[in-house]
Amino acid sequence: MNFLEALGKKTRVEPGADFDRKFWAKFDAEFEPKSPPAAQVPWWEGIREWFKLHPVPGRLALTGAALLAVLVLRPQRDLQPDAQPVVMQLELLQDLEMLEELGDAGDITDEEWGALLGGTEAG
């Protein structure tokens, strides 16, 4: 046996019994993530969880939201019948414009008007 072999045998030191457990605990603490990052959980999961935990306030909130939706949407629906007079007013304006054009048509005698109207009525 040479010096290096003899000394190597004599100076070898084995780590203690708890060495591995301590090391892997340190390793896991530094490198192993404990839970998935928040970004991986869908956003609605949080809301669903809240409704599970608070059923009564949850139903109240849903009812409130429904009422609010009715209040917001109802005036829009009520506005629709008012649109009808606006259409009628537009038609009246178109008729007046037509009459103006007829007025510009030149000097038409009463007889001619009579013939025209009578012809229209007859036609």
Partner: peptide, 26 residues
């Protein structure tokens, strides 16, 4: 084992030598 043996002969305190040996592997 070999790294622990090496470090222990520099720092002959078992707990500290083990800590340093673990630091080597980290």
């Amino acid at each position: 084992g070999p790294i622990m043996s090496y470090i222990y002969r520099f720092i002959p305190d078992r707990d500290r030598a083990e800590d340093i040996c673990q630091e080597v592997f980290l």
